[in-house]
Nucleic acid binder design. Structure first.
Lengths: 253, 253
DNA sequence: CGACACTTTGATACAAATCAACGAGGGTGG
DNA sequence: CCACCCTCGTTGATTTGTATCAAAGTGTCG
């Protein structure tokens, strides 16, 4: 089975992770028509007000979803990693209410909206799997509300690092304790509802407390559990499949 | 067709509002097995950690979805009105990561999870309609992130009042300019990431500015557009069907 | 090597939290 | 029917976390 390198393979893997798909279902997903493109950092995959005609799947790279306010303030409402549909909601709701922008160079696949809808109508199990994926995404956003609404800057940062670490690990991109972070401090601020200056001070605080270490664009978490405690982090809201190792089972160098 | 008073009728109406359902689809929804119960204010419909076996549909009343933090802080992540599924996500994700609590006395219908899944597997159009509904819910949560992350207390309150007004109007419960608000100031604070004291001062500020009026448990919006401007409110994120009247078409007494 | 984007630091200003009471309505029991 | 209590709303004084403004460092890429 050398479908291993099929561009949509990662999507299939991600869906199978949480839902049971038959061989036929998997093949139906892989049979989806698509066209791939390379894009550079900073490019937009969606803009407010657009009416989408195709669904964009992130094959590699890292993207942010955000809204701009009248006074120029920006709030990031989510990050996307490879395997994520970036604008499926907008497709189904007929209009984008946010912007999606790449933070790194990336490869994307465009799938005609009609083909997606057709696939989901003819394959209930696939529809269900995609639905469940979108519910898990929604759960993450809800946890962001909790963070931004009720946690201190220090906890918010700790929580976000924990989340990104786990999500990266779950996506098979390495250990939860070493996060490849293609974000500027300004973007961290826009994600957490804080200013750049305050992010800077808080990052340094965490560093002084030995809760994180930094080297270039990565963040290292020397003691996962301690950081999780500072962030009030519990992975339940990520709704990983049950196979996920307990926190205590993992402890990185 | 005296199905008019079928308890699930409101659900059918809500789904048909945004999606096209055939007569068969509608009847399949109405044929769902269910049992209704009356519940009193304060009762929980779901609790963190529970494994749901049935889906709860709110037939009447008002509920909040919230999370508790270690230090006792509470963050409300959403409100539910009649016609909403209150825990469909938890059912599909196998475990509740939040609590759902009634704010008013209410009637609810319990539908066995297996029957829901079966319905959605056999009727793709219904599955799609329910999915779209959950996407619209997610969009609301994302706007909450924007509010809590980047808006001032005054704007947050204005924005929430606008949202609740429109949602209530959309649900056929009256004009957007008169909101039946079964919330204490503490609950408003927990929803907006502010303290009770600060909510109190901000409410009075809006009142002094003649942006809202209060009488018992309702809030009256004398000039919708002015309040919408203060809140930076634009209804796009609610993703109502296109038939929605433009803001300027409506202006209440 | 220069340009530019990002990080870091300091000084100051505010918005919102906290702490502490008091007031007012609404339901309950005597 | 009144007195009581309990929750909710209101207000003031004070503190604190975070924003704002300003400027100097640092790194990286052409």
């Amino acid at each position: 089975m050398e479908a291993k390198h099929h561009p949509l393979q990662r999507l299939v893997t991600k869906l199978s992770d949480r839902s049971a798909l038959s061989e036929d279902d998997r093949e139906a997903v892989l049979a989806l028509p698509y066209s791939t493109r390379a894009k550079s950092a900073g490019q937009h995959l969606a803009r407010v007000g657009q009416v989408p005609t195709s669904c964009t799947l992130l094959l590699s790279g890292f993207a942010q979803r955000y809204r701009l306010l009248a006074d120029g303030a920006r709030q990031i409402v989510g990050f996307h990693v490879e395997g994520d549909f970036v604008d499926l909601h907008f497709s189904m709701l007929h209009r984008a209410s946010q912007c999606v922008q790449l933070l790194t160079p990336a490869r994307v696949a465009d799938i005609p909206k009609a083909a997606m809808v057709e696939l989901m109508r003819s394959r209930p199990a696939v529809a269900e799997a995609i639905w469940i994926e979108s519910l898990a995404d929604a759960s993450i956003v809800q946890e962001w509300v909790v963070s931004i609404g009720r946690r201190s800057a220090r906890s918010r940062l700790a929580h976000l690092f924990c989340e990104l670490g786990l999500r990266q690990e779950q996506a098979g991109l390495g250990s939860r304790c070493r996060i490849e972070l293609p974000l500027t401090q300004e973007q961290l601020g826009d994600a957490l509802g804080l200013t750049t200056v305050h992010i800077n001070r808080t990052v340094k605080l965490l560093e002084n407390e030995r809760l994180i270490e930094r080297s270039r664009r990565s963040v290292i978490i020397p003691d996962w559990e301690k950081l999780a405690e500072v962030g009030g982090f519990s992975s339940a809201y990520l709704h990983f499949a049950a196979s996920e190792p307990t926190l205590s089972q993992v402890n990185c160098p």
